[in-house]
Design a protein around this nucleic acid. Structure first.
Lengths: 239, 239
DNA sequence: CATCCGTTATAACTTAGGTTAACTGGAAAG
DNA sequence: CTTTCCAGTTAACCTAAGTTATAACGGATG
């Protein structure tokens, strides 16, 4: 059920079988949610965190004019709002970008788990810090990279993150986002997001159809993205 | 010595006098560093975190072409790289933007403190989550706000953060950054940063001279910035 | 099977911000 | 004093991305 989460964790740190049992006990219930639902609204007081079993979630902030900025995308295995454990309230919404299966993790249980296994406290702190690193890299994209480079970078990042949890097949993965949603991640207009995708296609770097992304030229794509995955902290790690 | 840090903490959470003693024991030594020095380089293995006593530090990422993107600014009272406690290596540099006084906090001591006071473990986790919230807000700026709005937003954020640690006088604070450095925070060119500052002056919102920023019209500035400080989590908080 | 409506595609036109370059003034160095 | 240097300023010009509009394609709905 939460095997993607273990893949993500075990890629970075070792987990004993006793710790594993503890983590499995975190989930109180599992919910199925349709696409385009706001599962958490900014400012609400929270007593649970959400562990994404399947589907895509976005952290997004609304603007008065109706524009949105997505600040991070979440895929299977991610805690979408682990930071709500310490913050209690989020400064952004959490929106489904596809049909999702979500495990609900009461903060109480998280607190008890960490009290019992202080090492896991550090492990989850570590995970929120990886989220922050991802956000930093997005800020880099937004501040310095061209539209083409930004789009390519996003595709590279998602490939690596999905690969970790076993959601890629060869050079391909499911990408349920519309071009509008992609544009909201990248700080572009839909029109320009479309032009940018066309250009990546024209250069023979990707294929994108039926919500499936195929990376035709990994080197090439990483090149225009200036992609360097160290910010994802993929290597094994002592706590 | 680290009173700014306590101001920052106590604004959000309560700290017992015993916990206070523990925190005071974190610092192993204090260093003075000149402006424009890289105190931590991306990728180095770290066994200390840096608590900024005085001065300004930036988290910055270099680009091949020589461009830099600053992803967060740190002022007195901030742990500039508390996330290195769990990450061990940073994905960005840490650069002084002014002469700085820096307290060195060995990770060992942090670990011991948290083991003795689990509540403080949450407190410091909480602080890294506030940093992430700040970075999210910067991503919003970079993705959606105009140059004028971005600059105004940065000035508002810094005012609030400096006020918390008692580093403002009336509507004024020391802002040691050059226009080039401001432009690196905001994803602009120096030239356009300059144009933008001129425009804020022309509108009577700010004064900026001799590295001193005066906010002439707080409402007005917050208006063009669409500034809402909830992301800074300034209210008192149970852990 | 007609009609909606969201997504993708495209073209024509506009603009915010980037680029290049030149000039100023003050502070440090000699 | 002069020279150097760097932060700030300004102007002329350029381009990446935004804006507006239109159309084609599908999948859902009645």
């Amino acid at each position: 059920m939460i095997s993607a989460h273990f893949k993500k964790l075990r890629r970075r740190i070792s987990i004993s079988s006793e710790e594993e049992r503890g983590i499995r006990g975190l989930v109180s219930e599992t919910r199925r949610v349709r696409s385009d639902e706001t599962v958490v609204r900014a400012g609400e007081e929270l007593s649970n965190s959400l562990l994404l079993i399947d589907g895509w979630l976005a952290r997004s902030k609304d603007f008065p004019g109706g524009e949105r900025q997505v600040t991070e995308l979440h895929v299977a295995g991610d805690f979408a709002d682990l930071h709500s454990f310490t913050l209690k309230r989020l400064d952004h919404d959490l929106v489904t970008m596809s049909e999702c299966t979500i495990a609900i993790v009461p903060h109480e249980r998280l607190g008890a788990l960490i009290a019992a296994h202080p090492r896991l406290g550090r492990a989850y702190w570590f995970l929120t810090n990886i989220d922050a690193a991802i956000q930093r890299e997005w800020a880099l994209s937004l501040g310095q990279r061209s539209a083409l480079s930004r789009m390519a970078h996003l595709f590279c990042e998602l490939f690596v993150r999905l690969e970790v949890v076993g959601r890629t097949v060869a050079n391909r993965y499911d990408l349920p986002l519309t071009q509008r949603e992609l544009s909201e991640c990248l700080g572009l207009t839909v029109v320009h997001a479309n032009r940018t995708i066309q250009e990546l296609r024209r250069r023979g770097l990707i294929e994108l159809e039926n919500r499936q992304l195929t990376i035709l030229d990994r080197r090439g794509l990483e090149g225009v993205a200036q992609f360097d995955p160290t910010y994802l902290h993929l290597d094994k790690h002592e706590l």
